[in-house]
Design a protein around this nucleic acid. Sequence first.
DNA 1: GTGGTCTAGACCACA
DNA 2: GTGGTCTAGACCACG
Lengths: 131, 131, 131, 131
Amino acid sequence: MFIQLKFDSEVPIYEQIKQQIKIGMAKGTLQPGERLPSVRQLAKDIGINLHTVNKAYQQLRDENFLLIHRQRGVVIHPDGAPKTDEIHKETLKAELAPIIADAFCREMSENDFLSVCYEIFKEMKGGSSDG
Amino acid sequence: MFIQLKFDSEVPIYEQIKQQIKIGMAKGTLQPGERLPSVRQLAKDIGINLHTVNKAYQQLRDENFLLIHRQRGVVIHPDGAPKTDEIHKETLKAELAPIIADAFCREMSENDFLSVCYEIFKEMKGGSSDG
Amino acid sequence: MFIQLKFDSEVPIYEQIKQQIKIGMAKGTLQPGERLPSVRQLAKDIGINLHTVNKAYQQLRDENFLLIHRQRGVVIHPDGAPKTDEIHKETLKAELAPIIADAFCREMSENDFLSVCYEIFKEMKGGSSDG
Amino acid sequence: MFIQLKFDSEVPIYEQIKQQIKIGMAKGTLQPGERLPSVRQLAKDIGINLHTVNKAYQQLRDENFLLIHRQRGVVIHPDGAPKTDEIHKETLKAELAPIIADAFCREMSENDFLSVCYEIFKEMKGGSSDG
DNA sequence: GTGGTCTAGACCACA
DNA sequence: GTGGTCTAGACCACG
């Protein structure tokens, strides 16, 4: 399975799972409508408790990234993720502000910062074929 | 004091304090060598526990953003924050990746994303000169 | 067939089938004595498991909405549904209370709420005669 | 405590808790900003597991009925519940349709149905003082 | 088989 | 003290 966890991270495991799934969706590794492993299967694969996986799945469903389908199990939302809007943009600014403040204090130039973003975007757009 | 807390946020209060101080430093509201309120004073001002403020100060000291003098109290590090390096850049990428993945899934364009970053940078650069 | 299912709903499929049949009966699309598709046929039509359809039919029979003849198959009860009584009224209140509480909390006016009910009733009454 | 559970109900316990809290809010028993018992306390009071209470609280927080406050614990949202809107109205119609269809099939008159709604509203508006 | 619910108990972060 | 996370294992509803 595509999930790589850091068990010694401060980021909760269920949060890491959410992030990895979103990254998979961004890179195209996970396509809309595609089925994800069952909670039990994924839990077994990565050696954690099924409730932890379930929590990640539930929250992604609440965010409309996933559908929990009576027949097909857990799938990537066929319509893709919800589209960006003002609320998302505000959330984004609130998330970025402290990160950028930190970088700014460290005298990282705006260009250097934007380059980092650019690189990450490139990985998403180009998928893994470029890597 | 300039600290604005959200007590119903998921972000711990000590973390919010750290962020606000860094934002203050980025905007120039807080200058190198400038003295911060004492732990007790700040705790009283914003109506929180003294240990919470202390934790924020301690961690900022560990990150070399602050100096804690036994006599002169807590001051912004005279040399400013530590400079960006490879370690910081890697940390930054790890922080940004899930945020960008989320934005990418929501079909936010790279330009729109970079604009948001640009805006935030502008607030830092223009910061106190406008005020 | 007139059944529209949402496979990603929290409502179980057999429950959705029951609801749709009752709505059909209320709108007059389904008349007393009218024959319904066989379990196998309906299951095939909507692409679900045979047991699911069966469960819905069985429960509607237990509620006296349907008759299941060994020969003539499944039919809408010739006498129509059982009539409302005190038991039904109590059940109804128990079902409505949390829904109304929710609407009340959201400051929906009593008139607005009753209007919604009125609209739904109108669809039932006007139902098939318009079609 | 004000929560009354039916352990033999089909409605999940956490759902009953949610409903009871909303009813309390509607009746004014629970006021905006008022503190709720801690998960552990409430769990102990009604003799269930703390995770079950937590699930109810979490979902009510997600619906913006509650705030989980770093200092005051779990409180009724100071602004009250989110206001009704088109989304809520659609949800409401979807919830009411099968209930009304059932009543309609049982030949309950529209007036009788609206009377039941009226009674429930009266309990909310008048609080318990009328009862 | 799937996910949903509930229990039980542990440990940690936070204030 | 609070809520948050994670584990473990049970039972049930569903399809």
